[in-house]
Design a protein around this nucleic acid. Structure first.
Lengths: 188, 188
DNA sequence: GTCTATATGTGGATAGAC
DNA sequence: GTCTATCCACATATAGAC
């Protein structure tokens, strides 16, 4: 199935941003991949800041659906947590890609205030969801040693992002698994 | 006390890199801060890749000393872990800076293979040290719920780096403390 | 919507005088 | 060691034809 130019640009940009960071690709790169001239991109996204906002907004919406899907497919807290960890592992693409939120976290410019606000909103969304997951896992005893669900949520998001970072740095998914092994073992 | 030009350049570059990433500063920036012309920088560091290697090599050496100092000042495993966490918190500079290793992990180019190898060596060094810390904390019972020291080490390094990332993204040190609260509470 | 052509800025890097 | 001057590549962005 073919996608419209705007979607093709978003797909290409997201892939590039997750591989090299938001400052790590240019309109020329996108143009080459999508098959139009770089000037044409400005018709869809007048500035690169506009593109950054569109990217992170779409990403947040996708993850909202991902979490919702996990909620319908899994009932146990532990199973839901395991599903999210797997999602973060898959996002690595063999050690080449990062979660868009992690990739954006290090870019210096190009990111408008609006994009930064979206990033914060994304993290808040994930924290809320993770908190309910840990609360459920504590109640149904599918996650061991749960103290405070809110704190567990904050620790888990940081752990997943940090594990991605070291895996990407070493171009080795095994590093992600090593960093998340303790967490995985808490899942019954 | 005044420092020589080369050291001043390294200091300025490290600060800039930890704030904005390795691709987030230019020779022009360094020149302005140090007070020489940018062409002069090439005398000390012919290419920016040379600068990246010098930066990460110096950083690893500093941390080798940091860990050694902690080992002499603290004996309990828990106290040693607490000291490292505090070091990572301080490195945030109120939410503006990252550990150089984290900052480098997201840069795309400019980093030579040599610099990447140094980064991997830095992480390995920290993992080895953390493993001994957890082993000690398990033995002297100053860290609770220690399962496998090697896995705990991998999880802790990822957690610290991830916690820095979210704190930097939100420009708020409280986010670092929130993410590390569970770990902190395991220290007796 | 996409094109060609171009403006404008900034990056790292070099040559050669002092 | 540091300077001035300059080069070249590449970035985002705009104007205007089709």
């Amino acid at each position: 199935m073919t996608v419209d130019t705007k979607t093709a640009l978003l797909n290409s940009a997201e892939s590039a941003a997750r591989r090299n960071g938001f400052d790590g690709f240019s309109y020329a790169d996108l143009a080459a991949e999508v098959g139009i001239r770089k000037a044409s991109i400005h018709y869809h996204f007048p500035s690169k800041a506009d593109l950054s906002v569109a990217l992170i907004a779409r990403y947040q919406e996708i993850f909202r659906q991902v979490c919702a899907k996990i909620d319908t497919e899994k009932t146990a807290g532990g199973a839901r947590l395991a599903a999210l960890i797997e999602r973060y592992a898959d996002a690595l693409n063999g050690g080449q890609s990062l979660c868009l939120c992690v990739a954006f976290s290090v870019s210096r410019d190009g990111l408008s205030d609006e994009a930064i606000a979206h990033m914060a909103a994304f993290r808040r969304m994930m924290l809320v969801w993770l908190e309910t997951v840990f609360a459920k896992g504590q109640a149904d005893e599918t996650i061991s040693d749960v103290t405070d669900p809110k704190r567990e949520a904050a620790a888990t998001l940081a752990l997943l992002e940090g594990a991605q970072l070291s895996a990407r740095a070493g171009r080795d998914v095994a590093l992600f698994n090593a960093a998340t092994a303790v967490l995985q073992n808490r899942i019954k």
